[in-house]
Design a protein around this nucleic acid. Structure first.
Lengths: 171, 171
DNA sequence: GCGTATTATTTAGGAAGCTAAATAAAGATA
DNA sequence: TATCTTTATTTAGCTTCCTAAATAATACGC
């Protein structure tokens, strides 16, 4: 664990930023996951349930696999598997669309809705307390910097063909 | 894709920071991975090879599974699998320790070393260009904010029992 | 020296993501 | 209408991570 001499000239700044991003995400997960685990779900599953809940509030109780994937930044095959597990756990329902026989529609089950309502306030408090080390101004600053950075990355990709996809989402 | 009305009072700031972190990491991967793919490896594999390379430069050509896991922030069983694939690909060698018969030692193969040397400069340039949207001062600022944040998260975990682990590392 | 930690790795099994290809339904066009 | 293309989902198979448990070797304490 000694700091040790830095490797080379290299891009120390950029590289360490990436490592920091990775460490941050990793830490956030390790801190939040046990909370979800007590409720019998994973962080990824929370992200899905929470998304379905918000969609419902916005008047879209039923989402297609594709829509859900876009909101979560994951691809349709990943949605299928995740939804399978949530259906099996009883938190989500899958049905057919009347208008388009190709589509399956996903929605919260009553149990899923209850779970979200139970966990949400507490989760929110936890997130707030995690961010507490930074002052409000610093939080804004961090958000702005990340936003500028990620927007730039988005643009770089524009040309590169491929688009969405990522790892998880809302936490 | 409409910005849409925000869900609730909720912790909008904290939540959006997490989403930004996720989006950023996702974007970085999607941008860098194709570069590694052309060389026949994944981003995770690059992280391992690059770590072994730096260790070698620091005079530790042979790393135990545990050491490598600590550097990469992944757990030993994950190292085993990753090393298996790299051995199969011919970029890494696994041997027994003379001093401790429990340990296996991992090191770069000549082909692995050549690969790192071939890719490194180019990768470095790419990382630098990704960071370019932010000024040097902003990059420092981002690093500092992330560092403070992640250090705080580290501390929160101290008490919580568990320690390391994360997703990937050096990129 | 012998039995009991402890430590190092691997195995087994699972979650969550990916791409590519298969299937099925819609839509468009000729 | 019949064919062709596009869209929506799933299946198959892979990577990368995880935890828990099995295996093997070392180190400790008496």
């Amino acid at each position: 664990m000694k700091p040790s001499s830095l490797p080379k000239p290299s891009n120390v700044a950029g590289d360490s930023t990436f490592r920091l991003l990775l460490r941050t995400i990793g830490n956030v997960r390790r801190i939040l996951d046990p909370f979800f685990a007590k409720a019998g779900i994973s962080g990824s599953q929370w992200a899905i349930l929470w998304n379905l809940y918000r969609a419902e509030e916005d008047g879209h109780a039923l989402l297609r696999v594709t829509d859900l994937g876009e909101r979560l930044l994951i691809r349709p095959p990943s949605v299928t598997g995740a939804v399978d597990r949530l259906v099996r756990a009883g938190f989500v329902l899958r049905s057919n669309s009347d208008h388009d026989q190709r589509s399956k529609l996903i929605q919260l089950s009553p149990a899923g809705r209850r779970l979200v309502e139970t966990l949400h306030a507490e989760h929110d408090k936890r997130v707030t307390s995690l961010m507490d080390v930074l002052s409000a101004a610093e939080q804004r600053q961090l958000n702005q910097l990340l936003h500028r950075f990620v927007t730039h990355l988005d643009e770089i990709q524009e040309g590169t063909g491929r688009e969405p996809s990522a790892q998880r989402s809302s936490l």
